[in-house]
Amino acid sequence: MTDPGVPVVIVHVHYADVWADMAREIATAFDRPFGLVITCRDDGIALAEVRSPHLVFARRLRTENRGRDVLPFLHALREMGDGFELGLKLHTKRSKHRADGEDWRRYMMDSLLGGEGGTPAALRLMERDHELGLVAPLAHLLPLEGRIALNRRAMRRVADRMDIPLDFEELTRKRFAAGSMFWFRRKALRPFAKTVLDDLFPKEKGQLDGTAAHAVERLFALVCERSGYWVTAAEALPDLLAAPQLDAATRTALTESAVARTSNPFALPISRFWGRHPYLLLAAHHAYVRTPRPVWRIARQLLRRFTLDR
Rank of each mutant, 00 (worst) to 15 (best):
M1W: 14
T2A: 15
D3V: 12
P7R: 10
P7H: 09
P7A: 07
V11L: 05
H12E: 11
H12L: 09
Y15M: 09
D17F: 05
V18L: 08
E25T: 08
E25G: 07
A29C: 09
F30P: 05
R32C: 10
P33E: 04
L36F: 03
T39P: 00
T39I: 09
R41C: 11
R41P: 11
L47M: 05
E49P: 00
E49Y: 02
V50E: 06
R51W: 07
H54G: 02
F57W: 13
L61I: 15
T63I: 09
N65A: 15
R66Q: 11
R68P: 00
V70N: 01
L74H: 02
L77G: 01
L77P: 00
R78W: 06
R78I: 13
F84D: 05
L86R: 02
L86D: 00
T92E: 02
K93W: 01
K93P: 00
H97T: 09
R98V: 11
E102Y: 08
W104M: 06
W104P: 00
R105A: 02
D110R: 15
L125H: 01
M126R: 04
E127R: 14
E127H: 07
D129G: 06
L132M: 09
G133P: 10
G133N: 03
A136S: 13
L138S: 08
A139K: 10
H140G: 02
L141S: 05
L142W: 13
L144S: 01
L144C: 04
L150I: 12
R153S: 11
A159I: 12
D160L: 07
D160E: 14
D160F: 02
I164E: 04
I164S: 01
R173Y: 05
K174C: 13
F176W: 08
S180L: 03
S180G: 00
F184Q: 02
F184D: 02
K187D: 13
K187H: 09
K187W: 10
A188V: 07
L189G: 03
V196Y: 11
Q207G: 03
G210C: 04
L219D: 00
L219F: 02
C224L: 03
R226E: 14
S227T: 05
G228L: 02
G228A: 05
Y229A: 03
W230V: 14
A233G: 07
L241G: 11
A242C: 12
D247E: 11
A248G: 11
R251H: 15
T252I: 12
A253N: 06
E256C: 11
V259S: 13
V259C: 14
R261W: 08
R261V: 09
S263H: 13
S263V: 15
N264G: 08
I270F: 12
H277W: 14
H277R: 13
H277A: 11
P278N: 07
L280E: 00
A283T: 12
A283P: 06
H285G: 04
H286L: 15
Y288P: 01
V289F: 01
R290I: 13
P294N: 10
R297D: 11
A299S: 10
A299H: 06
A299T: 04
R300A: 13
L302E: 04
L302G: 07
L302H: 07
R305M: 05
L308R: 15
D309N: 06
